[in-house]
Computed example of a mutant assay.
Amino acid sequence: MSDESVPVGRRFSQVYLQPEALLPDSKRARMRMGHVVAQYMDQDTFGIVLAKKLGIPVPSNYRSAPHWPYILEKMELRDFLDTITVLHHTLERKFQQDRTRITQERLLRDAREIFEEEQIAYRIDDQGGVHLKIDAAFEGERVSLISGLGSARYNNVRSNLDAMFRALDESPPNYKSAVRDIFSAAEGLFKLSFQKPLQMNTTEIQTRLKPAIDRIYSDNTYALRSSQKQVESLRDWVDSVHFYRHEPSSEEPSSPPPETAILMVSQGMAFIRWLAFIDHQIMRSQPLPSPEGTS
């Protein structure tokens, strides 16, 4: 690693001791979260609320902040993760509205920082709910994709993506539904861009998408050739997903194995981001409607 590429100002462990895969649990994360819980909890009531919500015994010393790292360390994993959600919810009516919002945001920031730095396999949503994270690369793709589909035009696409993420969050993950939902998101975007096709299949992709690609990259030979190969890849992806989509009068397919499902979902997310770019280009190339009374 050259001097220019060495991260500056980060802890040694974050640079050189990161695990190769996300961790299912972490003692360090539990200990660090214990200090966070102690910082944000209501000292007199949080232990009682936690016992009531989770149905677990909470030590009598819960009012003492220094004990919370050890309380969390001894919890079952499910209770440790649920504690974050319960703590977030207890803050909802603790202060006036603005202060409550700021406090909850700070809690989420602190908890997410711990999860990220300790590389554990969970993410925390904006309401304090904890979800399984596939891996760091998948999470990065998820965030990038959602941020690129912010306009109302893509509401239906986002709805299908939300369904896909919920399917992956199930325990165990519902991989078959996830694959179907990612296809629905891609097909919805394809129909939105080209309007005429009734479905996204290999024929329609060749008929609709390839000419659009030819126009967009007409002045860039290498980009054109590369993008034409991506059109072929999209056709192959569509064919691969069809094995797990239930068709009328056909046998219900079994669920894809996890590694196959995550591959198809990840590829689908990349194709959706690409198709969104194509959609922007198509929208930009469409002429504005003429004012009334003019030709």
Rank of each mutant, 00 (worst) to 15 (best):
E4S: 13
G9C: 10
R11P: 01
S13F: 12
Q14D: 13
Q18M: 12
E20T: 10
L23M: 13
L23K: 15
D25F: 03
K27R: 12
K27C: 10
R28Y: 06
R30P: 03
R32E: 08
R32G: 00
M33A: 08
G34I: 01
V37R: 10
M41P: 03
M41A: 10
Q43G: 05
T45M: 11
G47R: 03
I48S: 04
L50F: 08
G55K: 00
P57V: 12
V58Y: 01
P59M: 07
R78T: 14
D79V: 06
D79G: 04
D82K: 14
I84N: 04
T85C: 01
V86A: 03
E92L: 09
K94D: 11
D98S: 12
R112A: 06
E113P: 00
I114M: 10
F115Q: 04
E116W: 11
Y122F: 14
Y122H: 13
I124D: 04
I124P: 04
D125I: 04
I134Y: 09
D135L: 03
G140A: 04
E141N: 10
I146V: 14
I146T: 14
G148L: 01
G148V: 04
G148S: 13
A152C: 05
Y154S: 07
N156D: 12
N156C: 06
S159K: 13
L161V: 09
D162S: 11
D162C: 05
R166N: 05
P172R: 08
P173K: 11
N174S: 13
Y175W: 09
S177C: 01
S177Y: 10
R180F: 02
D181C: 10
D181M: 11
L189T: 12
F190K: 02
L192R: 02
L198N: 11
Q206V: 00
L209Y: 07
P211T: 06
D214P: 00
D214H: 01
R215Q: 11
Y217F: 15
D219L: 13
T221Q: 14
Y222P: 00
L224S: 08
Q228H: 14
K229S: 13
Q230D: 10
D236G: 08
V238N: 02
D239Q: 15
H246L: 15
P248E: 12
S249T: 10
P253V: 05
S254K: 14
G268H: 08
F271R: 00
I272R: 05
I272E: 01
D279L: 09
Q281S: 14
Q281I: 03
I282C: 01
E292R: 05
S295N: 14
